[in-house]
Amino acid sequence: MCYNATDPEQAAIDTLLIGYGNALRSDDGVGPAVVELIRQSLGEAFSASVACRTELQLTPELAAIIARADRVIFIDASVAVPAGRVTIRRITAQPTAACLGHQFSPPQILELARLAFGGVPQAWVVAVGVQSLAVGQGLTATVADTARRLAGHLRYHLPPIGKPSFHWTSRNTRLSH
């Protein structure tokens, strides 16, 4: 389930996790899978400070919730990253008048959040290298293992209420066993 019906419209969010991709195209669903793993592991202490969203794509209305967050982590599948590897990249809002698909890119949706709602969260893109984008449900073994370890890694860095938030620098890393 991707919709948190009890999420108050105006409440501030410490960390917003957005996993996006098509779960019917194998490893393309790794972003939603990682966020779902994190959601299942979160306890009461995190419920008010962390919001989890799983999406098929980044649509304009996400700008409203992004603007309420202090930091946003986009988790996406990538064919530019070797299977099983993860890159973490800091991003900022980017204005663009160029080609806009129905799926906004993370910098574009950040710009929408800035212009429309005045929110300027820190943001990262976590890209997971995929092995297969074939039609079908379920991750390949390699990517499923990466998803599990990535979820644990991100979960470790999520701040409980009142605790200082994490800070990441850009890096390209293979998660260690």
């Binding site: 304009p60 209305e61 700008a63 409203a64 204005p95 663009t96 008048a97 806009l100 710009e111 929408l112 212009l115 429309a116 709602f117």
Partner: peptide, 17 residues
């Protein structure tokens, strides 16, 4: 386009979103 719209008519664009 949508970004131009937000820059010049922010409330209108916000209502649309």
């Amino acid at each position: 386009n949508i970004f131009g719209l937000i820059r010049d008519h922010p409330e209108f664009a916000r209502d649309g979103i």
